[in-house]
Simulated assay, not measured.
Amino acid sequence: MSHILSSHAALIIVDVQPDFMPGGALACHEGDAIVPGIDELLRSRIFRHVLATQDWHPRGHISFASSHPGRVPFEQIDLYGQPQTLWPDHCVQGTPGAELHPAIDWSPLDAVIRKGSDPGVDSYSGFRENHGPAGARPSTGLAGWLRERGVEEVFVCGLARDVCVLWTAQDAVELGFRAHLLWDLSRPVTLDTDAATRTTLLTQGITITEASELRRE
């Protein structure tokens, strides 16, 4: 099924950074496999609006297992009344692992949204931080940027499919955008989550598609 892209569509590339690649601090399953396809999609300039998110943590971030004595990576704790996965130290500000992947030509980007900069709050979604005062999740400014340019639908790809990509697509729908996930240009932390991710996406009205199905209006 082809998807005809209008001028009201935007591409959001989530956290394609070396720390999420094989050999990186928080490697996703075959994370490097999406790099050539994303580079090709950007070079095609098929989207009028293109953004990237960048995980950008200070040292000692609350989501790091190393910030919690006696805890280990991938353990869950209660944080602000919600489950928090503890991660290996990753995407630390100013380190090579936090840079946008160097094998991609990022020149078509309109903007980069950095997230996870608050040392006390994790940020999976490109749209909002995970927690905030009185249950209100602080905005990254992405939704406003899109609305100012008349964007009505978003296509999301990147890493990781079961965490930051998923949360970004979910928030897009909650904030009033039509959302699609480019399955071939995303990878999970672990394949074990893929069935649940597909079910969640379809239940929430998020279309699963592939880059080869995109066509310009």
Score class of each variant (00 low, 15 high):
2 S>Y: 02
4 I>F: 07
4 I>H: 09
6 S>M: 04
7 S>V: 04
8 H>I: 00
9 A>S: 15
9 A>Y: 00
11 L>Q: 01
11 L>Y: 03
11 L>M: 08
13 I>L: 14
14 V>W: 01
14 V>A: 00
15 D>S: 01
17 Q>N: 12
20 F>H: 07
23 G>C: 11
24 G>H: 01
26 L>F: 14
27 A>M: 10
30 E>P: 03
31 G>T: 02
32 D>H: 13
35 V>T: 06
36 P>M: 08
37 G>D: 03
38 I>V: 15
40 E>C: 11
40 E>M: 11
42 L>S: 13
43 R>T: 12
44 S>V: 03
44 S>I: 02
45 R>G: 06
46 I>E: 02
47 F>E: 04
50 V>F: 07
51 L>S: 09
54 Q>W: 04
54 Q>E: 12
55 D>V: 08
59 R>C: 04
59 R>V: 14
60 G>H: 08
66 S>A: 15
66 S>N: 08
67 S>R: 02
73 P>C: 08
73 P>E: 11
77 I>A: 05
78 D>I: 14
78 D>Y: 01
79 L>W: 15
84 Q>V: 05
85 T>E: 14
86 L>N: 00
90 H>W: 04
91 C>W: 04
93 Q>G: 03
97 G>N: 12
98 A>T: 05
98 A>H: 00
100 L>G: 11
101 H>Q: 13
101 H>D: 15
101 H>C: 11
103 A>Q: 09
103 A>T: 00
104 I>R: 06
105 D>K: 06
107 S>G: 06
109 L>C: 08
110 D>Q: 13
110 D>S: 11
111 A>H: 14
112 V>K: 08
112 V>P: 13
116 G>L: 05
117 S>E: 09
117 S>T: 06
117 S>M: 12
120 G>I: 00
121 V>Q: 05
122 D>Y: 02
126 G>C: 12
127 F>T: 13
134 A>T: 02
134 A>S: 10
135 G>P: 13
136 A>W: 01
138 P>N: 13
138 P>G: 05
141 G>V: 02
143 A>H: 09
144 G>P: 04
145 W>Y: 15
145 W>T: 08
148 E>S: 14
154 V>I: 14
161 R>F: 08
164 C>Y: 10
165 V>N: 01
167 W>K: 09
168 T>G: 07
169 A>R: 10
170 Q>E: 14
172 A>I: 08
174 E>L: 15
177 F>Y: 14
178 R>A: 13
178 R>W: 05
178 R>D: 12
181 L>R: 05
189 V>K: 03
192 D>W: 02
192 D>E: 15
199 T>F: 06
200 T>C: 13
201 L>R: 03
203 T>G: 00
204 Q>S: 11
204 Q>W: 11
204 Q>D: 14
210 E>N: 12
217 E>P: 15
